[in-house]
């Protein structure tokens, strides 16, 4: 079933069609959510919330954009709300650095993941969105521009600045961890 037929069937309440929609898009949603929150359990929870929202608001989907663009937008909003709820602000990266200093154990992947996602989530919101969609979902500038409703050149600039900022943040963390 293509997206158009799928939407039609889901709107009619076809449970099988909804099942197919979940199968088709769950990987995309989990991948995006994971890029934002950095925790698979949280990404699964966000995925469930996203599908509930799709289910409830499918009647308002006007097909002005593609289904995937619409789902990406819902996923981004849900992920950013989740981050806001978890209060993962940029100061926390300092806390992580302190932990690293106290333990002086070699950095585990789990810790590295936390630091990376804290650094990403401390980027300005638009840089964070563009960077995550580009790096975790391998989306093109054009696709990101459609999702973010911006020009391609603006997306290019957002990703460039995000990479530079991320590099700086990770350098700050690295510098402090060596003291």
């Amino acid at each position: 079933m293509n997206d158009h037929d799928l939407i039609k069937a889901v709107k009619k309440g076809d449970e099988k069609a909804f099942h197919e929609l979940v199968e088709n898009y769950q990987q995309m949603i989990i991948g995006t959510a994971l890029g934002f929150v950095g925790n698979l359990d949280d990404a699964h929870d966000i995925t469930q919330d996203v599908f509930i929202e799709i289910y409830r608001s499918i009647n308002s989907f006007r097909a002005d954009s593609s289904l995937s663009t619409w789902i990406y937008r819902i996923t981004i909003t849900r992920s950013l709300n989740h981050i806001r709820r978890e209060k993962r602000h940029k100061d926390q990266i300092v806390v992580e650095t302190d932990i690293r200093e106290e333990t002086s154990d070699p950095l585990e992947d789990a810790d590295r993941k936390k630091i990376l996602h804290l650094a990403i989530s401390s980027l300005p919101k638009n840089q964070q969105i563009a960077f995550t969609l580009h790096n975790y979902e391998d989306l093109s500038y054009k696709q990101i521009a459609q999702i973010m409703q911006r020009s391609i050149s603006s997306v290019e600039s957002l990703i460039f600045r995000a990479r530079k900022n991320l590099q700086k943040k990770l350098w700050e963390w690295y510098k402090n961890s060596r003291v």
Binding site: Q27, I30, L34, D109, R112, L116, Y136, E137, D138
Partner: peptide, 8 residues
């Protein structure tokens, strides 16, 4: 890490 997280 970023690459391993790509396809969870």
């Amino acid at each position: 890490l970023m690459h391993t997280e790509k396809k969870p």
